[in-house]
Write a protein that binds this DNA or RNA. Structure first.
Length: 420
RNA sequence: GCGGGGAUCGCCUAGCUUGGUAGGGCGUAGGAUUGCUAAUCCUAUGUUCGCAAGAACUCGUGGGUUCAAAUCCCUCUCCCCGCGCCA
């Protein structure tokens, strides 16, 4: 959520942002609702003042043992008026908050302007693309031959985009998780295992409404939603709290499964475990002071890069364009790993600075002394490793001529072998 | 799941029986006073609208009763104690 003061002061800037993000948004309606809303606040406040004064008078009159019937009658009228006015005000308030919650974040000036991923800017490339002296297979082929993934039976028991991992691939998955947690633990991150389901209020704070229907699974008859990423549970963890300024930066590492509908992805990456309804992810989540958040952002992408370097997987870092990035983010880097089976770099990690946008939705504030004004914290999130997709990269980059998979050196001690 | 108890300002707490301006303490900040290693006193302290003055809101949530609700009634959530169930 943006500060409405900024929107009021500079609607041109917001209009430009909306154009550059290629987002349809009725800014005039928002400005109109904001105006109405403030007018209603003034008039209801006025009426409440009147009511408070009369209430006091009634109490005094009664205490003095006098007849208060006349004032009570007047008060009845005022009360009725107030109830009516409050009803219209509530309606406006509701419309206003619904609308402002869908207004995207202002993005950073370093973000390239463009409609889609074609405008993304490559900022870094690391590692050599492996050359194979044999016909390269994709991860589906390799895992089918080694019997490491059962997609057919998963389709039977759960549906498309589900999978049974089998045998050593289960071990590889756990190894990636364990290695990732050790890696972040060593860097001083606090480890978390969050709730995998959170309530509506928390989810609404963490994401933008339209993501609900395309991404988020709801539990029937409960006020619970399966998290699409640990970010959702981590961001809402400190909702409605005023934190101590001395506790920043709070660098958190969260391990969780992620559940996603992938409703808008029909036909895309249909096979294998590249795009699935559930996967495991170790996430970096940082609560930061506003003045430090850009520094933290660079640090987070550097940490994710270091992790993939340790895994010896070639990658490039893309700075996402205004039209391609998420609506709550002010700046997003994607780390794309080389996938020989697809002969392309594919998104494997994503690192965003949301500035105070997410914290404003969730009312996460801080101050250094109790009598200071509160300020909104900045929130940042980045994938350290999404294990299923990273395993695709490992399987394809580390495939051998005889159809096996070498295990990256760093993971060998965790898996307990050098080859699958 | 059943029975009992609870939720008040950053923290602790009074008020609820009997409806009528939510009081105190701690902490923190600013100020004053006294000067034997510190103490005492004053003021401020959450949210919204506002340049400000100010006003309104705030007693877990949402309803209801009433001229008026922290207080009475109902719903839900969470916490504590006991019982039941259970990896």
């Amino acid at each position: 959520m943006l500060d409405m003061k900024i929107v009021r002061q500079d609607p041109e800037k917001i209009q430009k942002m909306l154009r550059d993000r290629y987002v349809e948004f009725d800014l005039d309606s928002l400005l109109d609702l904001d105006k109405k809303r403030r007018e209603y606040i003034l008039s209801t406040d006025d009426l409440r003042k009147k009511k408070n004064e009369m209430s006091l008078k009634i109490a005094e009159t009664k205490k003095a043992g006098q007849d208060a019937d006349k004032i009570i009658q007047e008060m009845q009228l005022v009360s009725r008026q107030l109830t009516e006015l409050e009803e219209t005000q509530n309606k406006t308030e509701l419309e206003y908050s619904k609308l402002i919650l869908t207004l995207p974040n202002i993005f950073d000036q370093t973000v390239p302007i463009g409609e889609d991923s074609s405008a993304n800017k490559e900022v870094k490339k690391w590692g050599d693309i492996p050359k194979f002296d044999f016909q390269v297979s994709d991860h589906i082929d390799i895992t089918q031959k080694l019997n490491l993934v059962d997609l057919q039976r998963a389709a039977k028991t759960a549906g498309a985009r589900f999978y049974y991992l089998r045998g050593d691939l289960v071990k590889l998955n756990q190894s990636l998780i364990q290695f990732a947690l050790d890696f972040l633990d060593d860097k001083g991150f606090t480890l978390f295992q969050p709730p995998y389901m959170i309530n509506k209020k928390s989810m609404e704070g963490a994401i933008i409404a339209e993501d609900f229907k395309d991404v988020i699974y709801k539990i029937d008859d409960e006020d619970l939603y399966l998290i699409g990423t640990a970010e959702h549970a981590m961001a809402s963890m400190y909702a409605d709290e005023i934190l101590d300024g001395a506790s920043f930066p709070m660098r958190c590492a969260a391990i969780s499964p992620c559940f996603r509908k992938e409703a808008g992805a029909h036909g895309k990456d249909q096979k294998g475990i590249f795009r699935v309804h559930q996967f495991e992810k170790v996430e970096q989540f940082v609560f930061s002071r506003p003045e430090d958040s850009w520094k933290e952002h660079e640090k987070m992408i550097a940490i994710t890069e270091e992790f993939f370097q340790k895994l010896e997987i070639p990658y490039r870092v893309m700075l996402l364009s205004s039209g391609d990035m998420g609506k709550i983010s002010a700046k997003t880097y994607d780390l794309e790993t080389w996938m020989p089976g697809q002969n392309a770099y594919r998104e494997t990690a994503s690192c965003s600075n949301c500035l105070e946008y997410q914290a404003r939705r969730l009312k996460i504030r801080f101050r250094d002394r109790t009598n200071e004004d509160t300020k909104y914290v900045n929130t940042l999130n980045s994938t350290l490793v999404a294990t299923e997709r990273t395993m695709v990269a490992i399987i394809e980059n580390f495939q051998t001529k005889d159809g096996h998979i070498e295990i990256p050196k760093q993971l060998q001690k965790y898996v307990g072998k050098k080859m699958i």
